[in-house]
């Protein structure tokens, strides 16, 4: 469903991503792991059309989306859960969720969507009138997930969902990802927490210094000694 072909993205002169290729099948959960500064967020933002792509193509169901606007991409059923949640912090929880279904096709399902969101995250229902910026980190992450789900996405881009959260919350976040995946949504999961990401994913890619350096099933990647040492903390 999603296929990147030799994508290059840069900031000014510097190239942050060079010749990135990967693919993600319908209903698949693919992880991209990599250390700090590898270019993971750059990749998500480029895919979401928030950053210009210097060269290369990105196909979504066969259509090249590399030159679309973010709004056009949203219309094609792609939603983002950005790094650091990036909520509309001065707005209430419910307003954040409503913004999730801003695009015309999703708007009709607002009530149903809110019910589902509050069923999935009951605490958000209790706090629907609270200003989202005043929630705890874990609750803000729930809002970010619920907001994206309100868009009824076919493809979900999730960037570093475990960032800054306590281990017990991280566990819940990954359970949520598994539940969303079980409903048939395709997911591209970007994570620095390679152990967790490989547990969740069906396939994974390793990104480092702006390049894809490995790919395979989680088992294959875990068995490769250089990957285990560098990204999974398997000391020898």
């Amino acid at each position: 469903m999603l296929k990147a072909d030799a994508v290059c993205v840069g900031y000014g002169e510097a190239l942050a991503l060079s010749n990135i290729s990967f693919d993600l099948g319908p209903g698949e959960l693919v992880a991209i792991i990599g250390p700090n500064g590898a270019g993971k967020t750059t990749l998500v933002n480029a895919l979401a059309r928030l950053l210009p792509i210097r060269s290369g193509g990105i196909l979504l169901d066969g259509e090249n989306i590399a030159r679309l606007t973010p709004q056009q991409l949203a219309d094609r059923g792609v939603a983002i859960i950005p790094e650091g949640r990036r909520l509309f912090t001065s707005m209430t929880v419910e307003e954040n969720l409503e913004l999730g279904c801003y695009r015309a096709a999703a708007r009709a399902h607002k009530r149903e969507g809110l019910e589902q969101a509050y069923a999935m995250f009951p605490i958000l229902g209790e706090r629907r009138r609270q200003i989202s910026g005043t929630l705890s980190g874990g609750q803000q992450q729930m809002v970010a997930f619920a907001r994206a789900l309100m868009a009824r996405p076919r493809l979900l881009l999730i960037d570093e969902p475990s960032l800054g959260l306590a281990p017990v919350i991280i566990k819940q976040v990954f359970e949520t990802i598994a539940r969303i995946h079980a409903t048939g949504v395709s997911i591209l999961l970007i994570e620095q927490n390679a152990t967790k990401a490989l547990e969740a994913a069906q396939r994974a890619y390793v990104l480092d210094c702006g390049q894809m350096i490995a790919s395979g099933t989680p088992d294959e990647l875990r068995q490769r000694p250089e990957i285990g040492a560098a990204y999974l903390g398997h000391g020898h």
Binding site: N45, T69, Q71, M91, E95, R107, R147
Partner: peptide, 23 residues
């Protein structure tokens, strides 16, 4: 209204608002 909420969202975070379809 949708318009008012979209404007406030755009003020809080224009890029993310755009990613959810706000023009």
């Amino acid at each position: 209204t949708w318009l008012g909420k979209a404007l406030r969202a755009g003020l809080d975070n224009p890029a993310i608002a755009a990613a959810f379809g706000v023009p």
